[in-house]
């Protein structure tokens, strides 16, 4: 399968500080790619470059087939993004939030009507469509935020710690949604702090001090480090970090 993200020697400097140091990796279409690292390891900066929010100091890369340094506007059309804050408007209703994101991504009105009805049905949200988001439970907000992020059928969806503050049962349900989305051909690029979630990914990269120190399937990584869980892999690597939080 083709690579949807392909990055070569990507570096970001802020003055003397090298936030992201010469990282190289690629992500295949339909893959669930876990992007791990301790706080301050440079995950967010790397992700911002991939999303076209920040220019790389050095290195090249393509996302969805577009150059991250020159074609960030085109990249933005073909990616979805969900942050740990769920990024919904609390004072808008469920339907209004969907309409807003559909509108921003230029989804046609007819398509929007048809697909939003289907979506609400799938999520079992039909009787909640005129409810203000502020009154929804956290798990529902999370599902809705994810659905809004992929409403325009992006090639890749970036999830920045999407399960923060959510209980384990809801997290499991959320990962079911992620699997379903990946099965439909949307590539998932996810950062997380939960090591059990890292086990769910097809491949995982672990960043330490701005560099990618490990990149493989969870199974291979565990073998490589002679441990029985991703959590222990992460501990071993994170101990090498010299940067503070």
């Amino acid at each position: 399968m083709a690579d949807v993200i392909c990055v070569n020697g990507l570096t970001k400097r802020f003055g003397d500080f090298v936030a992201v140091n010469n990282i190289t990796f690629s992500v295949k279409e339909g893959e669930i790619f876990g992007f791990l690292g301790a706080n301050g390891a440079g995950k967010t900066t790397a992700m911002r470059m991939l999303c076209g929010l920040s220019f790389p100091s050095e290195g090249t890369g393509t996302v969805a087939g577009f150059d991250i340094a020159k074609q960030s506007e085109k990249i933005k059309k073909h990616i979805g993004y969900m942050s740990q804050k769920f990024s919904l408007y609390e004072d808008l209703t469920v339907m209004e939030n969907i309409q807003l994101y559909a509108g921003i991504y230029g989804v046609e009105k007819e398509t929007m009507k048809r697909e939003s009805t289907a979506l609400l049905k799938k999520l079992d949200f039909e009787n909640k469509k005129d409810t203000l988001v502020s009154s929804l439970p956290l798990g529902w907000k999370q599902k809705l935020a994810f659905s809004a992020a992929i409403f325009h059928h992006p090639k890749i969806v970036f999830l920045d710690e999407p399960t923060g503050g959510v209980d384990p049962a809801t997290r499991r349900q959320f990962w079911e949604m992620i699997y379903e989305t990946a099965a439909n051909g949307i590539t998932i690029f996810v950062t997380t702090h939960y090591m059990d979630e890292a086990e769910y990914c097809n491949r995982v990269s672990i960043m330490v001090d701005g560099k990618i120190e490990a990149l493989n399937t969870p199974k291979n990584l565990k073998e490589q480090f002679h441990v029985d869980s991703m959590s222990k892999v992460f501990d071993q690597l994170a101990r090498r970090a010299k940067r503070g939080e």
């Binding site: 999303c51 076209g52 929010l53 506007e73 933005k76 059309k77 990616i79 993004y81 969900m82 942050s83 740990q84 804050k85 769920f86 990024s87 919904l88 408007y89 609390e90 994101y101 921003i104 991504y105 230029g106 970036f158």
Partner: peptide, 12 residues
């Protein structure tokens, strides 16, 4: 609220 970030990632 973090929504600005999402807007900046959008094609707008």
């Amino acid at each position: 609220s973090g929504t600005l970030e999402v807007l900046l990632v959008s094609p707008m």
